[in-house]
C-alpha cells in the first residue's frame, strides 16, 4: 500500500511536469502579449517585453520559470502589477472552496443520504464505489469552475481569475492556476483510488508491483 502510494505520487509529479510544460508551450502560441496596448509606443513595448524577459528564447524562459517553481515562486502578475501569483491564488481559494462545497453538499449529501435509505445496509459499500469515483473529480470541478456563480454573486474566486488572466495574457497567473488546478485534481484522483481499497479490499491496486 505504502509503495503504491509512493509510486502514484511519483506519477503525479511527472504528470504535473508535463502539464506545466504543455501549458507553457501553448502560451507561447497565444497571440499578443500583456503589453499590446494601443497607448504604448513600439519602443515602449520593446522595453517592457525586455524588462519582463518576454523577448527571451522559450528555452530560457522555461528554465527560469521552472527554476523559480522549485523555490516556490509562481511569478508575478502583469495585470495586477507585481502581485505574487501564489498570493493571488491563495486569496481567492477560500471563497472558491466555500462555493464549491456548498454546491457539493446540496448536490450530493442529500442524494447520498436519500440513497442510503433506499439501498439499505448491505448495498452501501458497493454503492459507494461509483459515488466516490464521481465525487472526487466533481469536487475539483465545483471548486475551480464556478465562474458563472462567481460573477452573479460577486464571489472573489478562482474561476473568474482564470478567465480574466487568459483574456489579458497574464501568463504566470494562467500557469499558476493551471498548476494548482492540476495538483488538486490529481490529488483527488489519488485519494479516490486509496478510498477504493478502504471501501472494498477486494479491489486490488495495481501500480508498480503491488503484492501486498
Amino acid at each position: 500500500m505504502k509503495k503504491y502510494v509512493l509510486v502514484r505520487i511519483m506519477y503525479m509529479m511527472i504528470a504535473i511536469a508535463l502539464i506545466v510544460s504543455i501549458t507553457f508551450l501553448l502560451l507561447e502560441f497565444m497571440p499578443g502579449s500583456p503589453f499590446n496596448d494601443l497607448r504604448l509606443t513600439p519602443e515602449q513595448r520593446v522595453l517592457l517585453d525586455e524588462k519582463y524577459g518576454l523577448n527571451d528564447p522559450i528555452a530560457v524562459k522555461y528554465a527560469r520559470y521552472v527554476g523559480n517553481l522549485f523555490h516556490g515562486d509562481l511569478g508575478t502578475s502583469f495585470i495586477f502589477n507585481n502581485q505574487n501569483v501564489s498570493d493571488m491564488i491563495a486569496a481567492r481559494m477560500s471563497s472558491s472552496i466555500l462555493v464549491g462545497l456548498q454546491a457539493l453538499v446540496c448536490g450530493s449529501v442529500v442524494g447520498i443520504l436519500l440513497g442510503i435509505e433506499v439501498i439499505l445496509k448491505h448495498a452501501v459499500r458497493n454503492a459507494l464505489i461509483p459515488v466516490v469515483t464521481i465525487l472526487g473529480p466533481m469536487t475539483v470541478t465545483l471548486i475551480t469552475g464556478s465562474t458563472v456563480v462567481e460573477r452573479i454573486f460577486s464571489v472573489p474566486g478562482l474561476g473568474n481569475l482564470l478567465v480574466t488572466s487568459i483574456q489579458s495574457n497574464d501568463y504566470f497567473v494562467i500557469l499558476g492556476e493551471g498548476l494548482v488546478f492540476s495538483l488538486m485534481f490529481l490529488s483527488v484522483v489519488l485519494v479516490v483510488d486509496i478510498l477504493y481499497g478502504l471501501i472494498d479490499p477486494r479491489i486490488r491496486l495495481t501500480g508498480g508491483n503491488s503484492n501486498e
Binding site: 477560500s94 471563497s95 466555500l98 462555493v99 462545497l101 456548498q102 457539493l104 453538499v105 446540496c106 450530493s108 449529501v109 447520498i112 443520504l113 442510503i116 454573486f153 460577486s154 464571489v155
Partner: peptide, 21 residues
C-alpha cells in the same frame, strides 16, 4: 465520516461570511 464531514462543511459554508451579496 463522509456524511458527517459533508454535513459539517455545509454548516460552515452557510455560516461563513465573505460570499455573495
Amino acid at each position: 465520516a463522509l456524511a458527517t464531514a459533508l454535513a459539517l462543511t455545509a454548516l460552515v459554508g452557510y455560516g461563513g461570511g465573505g460570499v455573495g451579496t
